Amino acid sequence: MKTIEWKDWEIFCRVVEGGGFTQGAELAEVPKSSASAAVARLEGQLGIRLFERTTRRVRVTERGQRLYERVAPLFAELHEISAEATSDSAEVSGLLRISTPYEVGSQHLSESLTRVLRAHPGLRVQVDVSWDQPDLIRHGYDLAFVMTDTALHDTSFASKRVVLVERAFYAAPALIKTRGLPRTPQDLQGWPTLGNADDRHWEFLRDGVEIARQDVEPRICTHNAELRLKAALDGLGVTRLSPRFVQDAVGQGQLVRVLPGYASSPLKVYVLMPARKLMPASVRVLLDMLEQTLGVPEARRPYGKRRENA
């Protein structure tokens, strides 16, 4: 009976996920020549072609794709079991690299980070502020927080939804005095607006049901909520922000909630992590702390092919 080279099988999975031998070798952390040799050995052992190769590209065959879909979840589960078995005894130290939008970091992440750092003096944390959803493997992040009002751009990483960020509408008293107090969403027609970079319309919800939708052409388009807040305080337009983010300004009378009987569609905040890697103890303790402070649900672990545009 021939010995099964399980490493060849795992390299095969990484080549599928990487869309070729170069990226697949990086994911498997082996030289490209070793990845090519592993796949060739596996093809010889199975007696089938796993990839169609041309001078310009490598494409998994139909039989190769079927094998990948059966095998990849098994390796992911083995990694998870190994990580769980070792994380309890592993020292929580070293550098934890995180990417997060500013609002998520300041409002939802800071408390968990403070508790973890106090409990583990040997741990260091680097937090990069970014709205974009990064490629965790390429950019070397252990965790990335993503805020979106639609779906995740890439479902190849393990993910947890952290929290829903409620949104409502706010304006400065001076702007309301000039424009008049709106009674319905239609009354905002013609008002100057301050929105996200991708805002084309705003939804108006009552009891979670969309009642109206208003097209917007924001005077300021930015994912930076701090900038939108300051512009709203200066009376430059009505803005859509989290009640938690503007509570101080509202409490001081600098902003007024417009159309208080309506909310807007919430933003979904996810935390992503590389499913291919053993989960470091530092990642696990932070996720555990997030669950305690924010009530994070269980991870969703997809095992589909990694999209090439990620």
Rank of each mutant, 00 (worst) to 15 (best):
G140D: 01
Y141H: 01
D142L: 02
D142M: 02
D142V: 00
L143S: 03
A144D: 00
A144I: 01
A144C: 09
A144V: 06
F145K: 01
F145L: 05
F145R: 00
F145A: 01
V146A: 00
V146E: 01
M147N: 10
M147W: 08
T148F: 03
T148D: 04
T150R: 14
A151S: 14
A151T: 14
L152P: 00
H153N: 13
D154K: 00
T155D: 15
T155G: 11
S156N: 09
S156T: 08
F157P: 08
F157K: 07
F157M: 11
A158E: 09
A158S: 11
S159R: 08
S159G: 09
S159F: 06
K160P: 00
R161P: 08
V162A: 08
V162C: 04
V162S: 01
V162P: 01
V163D: 00
V163N: 02
L164N: 13
V165S: 06
V165M: 08
E166H: 13
E166L: 12
E166K: 14
R167D: 01
R167F: 05
A168K: 05
A168C: 10
F169S: 04
F169I: 04
Y170D: 07
Y170V: 07
A171M: 07
A171E: 03
A171H: 02
A171I: 06
A172F: 06
A172C: 09
P173M: 04
P173Y: 05
P173K: 04
P173R: 04
A174D: 10
A174R: 12
L175H: 04
L175F: 05
I176W: 02
I176Q: 05
I176V: 14
K177V: 12
K177Y: 10
K177R: 14
T178G: 13
T178I: 13
T178S: 15
R179G: 09
R179W: 09
R179Q: 14
G180V: 09
G180Q: 07
L181M: 14
L181W: 12
P182E: 03
R183H: 10
T184R: 08
P185F: 01
Q186K: 11
D187H: 05
D187I: 06
D187P: 03
Q189H: 13
Q189R: 15
G190P: 07
W191Y: 00
W191T: 03
P192Q: 02
T193A: 09
T193R: 00
T193L: 08
L194C: 03
G195Y: 04
G195V: 05
G195C: 02
G195K: 06
N196K: 12
N196D: 15
N196M: 14
A197E: 11
A197L: 12
D198V: 11
D198Q: 14
D198E: 13
D198I: 14
D199T: 10
D199I: 07
D199C: 05
D199W: 10
